[in-house]
Design a protein around this nucleic acid. Structure first.
Length: 213
DNA sequence: AAGCCATACAACCGCCCCTTA
DNA sequence: CTAAGGGGCGGTTGTATGGCT
């Protein structure tokens, strides 16, 4: 596995442009250490913007998007890779319940984690876990859910306010007042989200942090 | 030891929104 | 105001790796 491969080990379809090909085809596939180094150097000098220009200056035969992805997901400083903790996993599960597949928003709440990593983690680990859990629940408690106390909250996620200010507006009545603004309405079961009945005190730390933010 | 299959994850693609000229 | 290009995002694919038979 691993993100990096020596160009010499690339398959014939990969690293096309490393041959002195006549056509201006962009390089695709795994990044080499050399490419990473060049990209990092140029970004250190010019900053992480204008990706097409960065690719050109670095002499990388890559599209700007590819450079951006590589930088954001792997080369950028303070990136955490792998070893997603139980708390992080729990947070991902809850945030996904709340936000759906809004990976960038979810990643915004997990310092050092990228949307791509969370998305991958979800697809390979958590989605299966959830399906399994749902099966178990269906098998055991098909009709045991309490009805009366459930409040159906709607949450507005302000689209433009990612990163620092992706605050959520809890609103259980005057929803339509916000309809003109740039928002997305999400329905979720607040009872499920805040059901800590079978959790230790440790798991509560993140939620207080989350609310504080 | 070899082949097959499942899993994990890096990277690409396409759509859409935002910015800029 | 508008069109074009750039960038962000989620979905999907491709491939390396590890486990099992």
């Amino acid at each position: 596995m691993g993100p990096l491969r020596d160009q010499s080990s690339l398959k014939p379809t990969e690293g096309k442009n490393n041959t002195a090909s006549t056509k201006k085809e962009v390089n695709k596939g795994a990044w080499t250490e050399e490419e990473d180094r060049k990209l990092a150097e140029v970004i250190a000098l010019h900053g992480a913007k204008r990706w097409k220009t960065i690719a050109a200056i670095a002499g990388l035969n890559r599209c700007g998007k590819s450079c951006r992805l590589r930088w954001l997901n792997y080369l950028r400083p303070n990136i955490k890779r792998g070893n997603i903790s139980d708390q992080e996993e729990d947070l991902i599960l809850r945030l996904h319940k709340l936000l759906g597949n809004r990976w960038s928003l979810i990643a915004g709440r997990l310092p050092g984690r990228t949307d791509n990593e969370i998305k991958n983690y979800w697809n390979s680990h958590l989605s299966k876990k959830i399906k399994l859990k749902e099966k178990q629940i269906k098998g055991t408690t098909s009709s045991s859910r309490k009805q009366g106390s459930k409040i159906n909250y709607q949450i507005k996620v302000h689209e433009g306010d990612q990163e620092e200010n992706n605050s959520l507006i809890f609103n259980n009545n005057k929803i339509n007042n916000y309809e003109s603004s740039n928002t997305t309405t999400i329905h979720f079961d607040v009872d499920d989200f805040f059901d800590f009945s079978n959790e230790g005190s440790l798991n509560l730390e993140w939620i207080s942090k989350f609310i504080q933010d």
